[in-house]
Amino acid sequence: MPTISRRNFTLLLPAALAACGASENRGPVFKSYGGPPVTQVVVQKSNRRMYLLSGRSVLKSYDFGLGTQPIGHKQFEGDGKTPEGLYFIDRFNPRSRYHLSAGISYPNAYDRAFAAQHGLSAGGDIMFHGRGPEGRQLVKQRKDWTAGCITVTDDEIEDIYAMLSLGLPVMINA
């Protein structure tokens, strides 16, 4: 078996990495946003509309899908519901299996205590996210397909991801 010298490996490495980036599967796009700061996200579950606000001005709005059981507040892990109430953006995942995702701080102390009173877990990992390959197939079957997350198209999550910041309040209404 032929061996590759350290010098040849160093020369081949950039070409190999470039070839990896040439796949047809588009990865996350990291857009930038230079407009007014988003000061709050308001989610209206009943009419499936999300608003990114700066003060009282709507900067952008989006249609979305919810959990498999869209009516009511998330109470337990696996209930398929999307939480309702005041939460905050608490993390970003550029390697999400659903293209990109921004975490919502569910469960809060009240959510955990309520679930514990019933001997159950409140669950977690609630996000704004795109669809990714798996979600693109699931959304063809039903609009509300997540375990409780709020989902938009991959193009839309790229814009949203650029506009959100850690600690941003998220008000999710019924």
Rank of each mutant, 00 (worst) to 15 (best):
H129C: 07
R56H: 11
H99G: 07
I4Y: 12
H118V: 10
L164F: 04
H73C: 11
E24I: 14
Q69T: 12
M171N: 15
R136G: 10
F30E: 08
R26I: 15
K31D: 10
R7I: 15
S165H: 13
Y33L: 03
Y87T: 08
K45L: 06
S57I: 05
L12K: 15
R91D: 05
A16K: 15
S32L: 14
F88Q: 12
D63N: 12
D90V: 11
I4E: 14
N8Q: 15
V43A: 08
T39E: 03
F76N: 07
H73P: 04
S101W: 11
K140M: 07
D159I: 02
K143E: 07
A116W: 04
M171I: 15
T3E: 15
A16V: 13
A162L: 05
V41I: 05
I160M: 11
G123E: 11
Y51V: 00
A16C: 14
S121P: 03
V170C: 08
V43S: 08
G21R: 11
S5M: 03
H99P: 10
S165Q: 14
F30I: 14
I172Y: 09
E24P: 13
I104R: 02
V58I: 04
R91P: 00
H73Y: 09
M1W: 08
A116S: 07
L66Y: 06
I126E: 07
L53F: 14
P169V: 03
V170T: 07
E156L: 08
P107V: 02
V29Y: 04
F92P: 07
L11G: 10
T10E: 15
A15T: 15
I160F: 09
A115G: 08
D79M: 06
S96E: 05
A116G: 07
Y98D: 10
M163S: 08
G72M: 05
